[in-house]
Amino acid sequence: MKKLIIYMLPLVMVALSCSSYRYHTTKMTGRDFSQFHTYGWLPPVDSLSKSYFDNDIAQNNIMETANRELEARGLTYTKDNPDLLFRYIAIVNNKSKPLYAPAYGFYPWGMWGYNPWMWGGWHMGWNQPAGKTLYRAGHIIIEARERKTDAVIWQARGTGEVRTPEDAINKLPEVVAQVMAQYPVPPQTASGR
């Protein structure tokens, strides 16, 4: 039983590390984002990739969460000449990642040859490339375009593994909230309004 746990623990850790989203952002330097007070929405970008997010439920989850996050940052929605125009891009595509096999055995001179600080003995690890495995990656990208200049001045992205369409859609509010957390203006507190 102990051996089974020792062999399964790395698999569980790899599976858990793959299920989380990673967030990245970029912005145009020299911009004072606190000067923007109103916002509107551009239509979402059509993607050529297979998308799980091409339905009313997913679009509602994205828009509702993004609107709530923008309003928490002091921005007001308007259709008439907003300061910023936001757009989202939702993509699901195929990716591959390396698949590793266990490496174990008796190494009398250390794991990779003679090493005076690593004595011989049985060693176990996950360092032998065994191939690649395919998975679906979901990307939620939100960008802000300054209406006056028509330039994208901020963009943030959340990327993670998508296991099922239902889980991906249900997780959208959490992912969009984390993407919007990258916006250069922090949420206002109740006393700050």
Rank of each mutant, 00 (worst) to 15 (best):
P108G: 08
V152W: 00
P184R: 08
M1D: 12
D83A: 11
N94W: 07
D80N: 14
D54F: 07
Q59E: 11
A190K: 15
T38W: 12
L11Y: 09
D150A: 10
A15H: 01
F86W: 10
P187R: 07
P43D: 12
Q188A: 15
A181Q: 08
T38I: 09
I141Y: 01
G138H: 01
G131H: 05
V45S: 05
P102R: 11
P44D: 06
E69S: 09
M118Q: 14
K3H: 11
D32V: 07
Y77T: 09
T149F: 06
T164M: 03
I142E: 00
L134D: 14
R157Q: 12
V152I: 11
Y104V: 00
R31L: 13
P116A: 01
T65K: 08
I5M: 13
V45T: 09
N93K: 13
L42Y: 04
K148F: 09
L48A: 15
K3V: 08
K171V: 07
Y39W: 11
F53S: 03
S191C: 03
L42R: 08
I153C: 05
D56F: 11
T65A: 04
L85Y: 05
W154A: 01
K95S: 12
K27P: 00
L84R: 11
N115A: 05
A137K: 12
V176K: 02
T65V: 06
Y88I: 02
